[in-house]
Design a protein around this nucleic acid. Structure first.
Lengths: 229, 229
DNA sequence: ACCGTAAATTAGCCTTACCTAAATTACGGT
DNA sequence: ACCGTAATTTAGGTAAGGCTAATTTACGGT
């Protein structure tokens, strides 16, 4: 009679709350009312009310005045939504001419109305990718996620070659600046030179050299090429 | 300050009501409360309530106890939704392996969450089709529709060649039966023989002959090949 | 002209999901 | 140990969009 067994459809709002709470929980601490409210651009009392409903539905556990933690059911529901979101993003970029800076909004709406079947067909058309265009891992249908440990480009020693995995910002101007060097997720770069004291980093990207500031280099999360994907 | 000028987003419910009313209005009479309720599987009082809200928003005109007629704004909104629906259906059939009998449900949900941009990209990927997989005309972005006059296969004289445009049913068993002869919208058929008194009709489809009963032949709406598409 | 039935509307109620204003709780600093 | 502030919750309200039960209206048949 609970949410997981009946698989009763969740509302848009509920899916958005679960996604937000999942994201906030990744820091290791319980998600607080205020953080959730801020993330979803809602008032704190609205969040308090929804928390009560979600905990009655068994999707999360609430310690009053402390915060919330997703239950297993809640985490699975969140991951289902995140899988939908990331596959939609990947599909729109691969087949319908979207840029990785602009897909987010479209996916945000579609993730709530798409059937499981459509998602699996899109995934198939994409060759069952493991990462979305931003480099975020796509959860499996069973709810498992490969959470990789990424290293910021700013911490990679000179001489090493890495693959860009993720640009850790959603600010369009930064994304555009980064994209202008060809530094998309999946791009392989070699660190040519690294100046100390948060100094500039020289990287080689597809035969060309670029010099990046420390602030930008911190945003570029990298993995050794043989890991993942 | 009205719906058309502000282009304020309509809710799912509102879009569904407008679509239903548009469909019912095509018979020439105003749509009645009962018909709308039946179409949307809602109670009559719910429809009464929504009619009041929609008429306050200027999307339709209501003569109490008589019925409703869409305003220009209302009709445009309905056609935008119908365009979305039909392009989505066409796209899913063309690119994601959906059958024309099964797309409807998926499109029904997606039509409400898809952006104008995504629709136009899908339309482009399809080569801006004028008909969906069921043979229904796709309204243009400006809200114009080519309403063609179709003739049921049961009324085409023997000897003539026509193109199937539309199967006028949504019952999956009939659609499957029809599809089993290869009689999809777009298919060209020649009427070989036509028995009187609602008798069977012999048609030639792609080199093969099939005999159809009157009931099925009535559902198959046809056009001369040179018209449309 | 009337009367019964079917259609439509009104009355009254519910849930979801938002809001603001007011009350409560937790916690860091003296 | 207390006190102020910030976070949280409670109280109370709104709009959308459903519902059932009761009422009102329109209309066809005699």
């Amino acid at each position: 009679m609970n949410a997981a067994t009946l698989h009763e459809p969740l509302t848009r709002s509920v899916e958005d709350y679960l996604k937000a709470i999942y994201r906030l929980s990744q820091k290791g601490q319980p998600a607080t009312t205020n953080d959730i409210a801020h993330q979803l651009e809602l008032s704190a009392p609205s969040v308090s009310g929804m928390i009560k409903r979600l905990s009655e539905q068994g999707l999360l556990e609430h310690v009053p005045y402390k915060g919330v933690v997703l239950t297993l059911d809640g985490r699975h529901a969140a991951l289902r939504t995140i899988r939908r979101h990331r596959i939609i993003e990947a599909y729109l970029v691969a087949f319908l001419g979207y840029g990785w800076e602009t897909v987010h909004e479209e996916a945000e709406r579609l993730e709530h109305s798409v059937s499981e079947m459509l998602i699996e067909r899109m995934a198939e058309a994409l060759g069952n990718p493991r990462f979305d265009p931003h480099g975020d891992p796509i959860p499996e249908p069973d709810g498992s996620v490969t959470e990789l440990v990424y290293t910021p480009l700013s911490e990679i020693p000179a001489g090493e070659s890495v693959e860009i995995r993720q640009a850790d910002t959603s600010q369009p101007d930064r994304l555009r600046y980064i994209a202008s060097f060809g530094l998309k997720p999946g791009t392989r770069v070699t660190i040519v030179d690294r100046q100390p004291f948060q100094g500039p980093i020289t990287v080689q990207v597809g035969g060309q050299s670029h010099i990046l500031g420390h602030e930008i280099a911190m945003l570029l999360l990298c993995a050794r090429p043989e890991i993942g994907s």
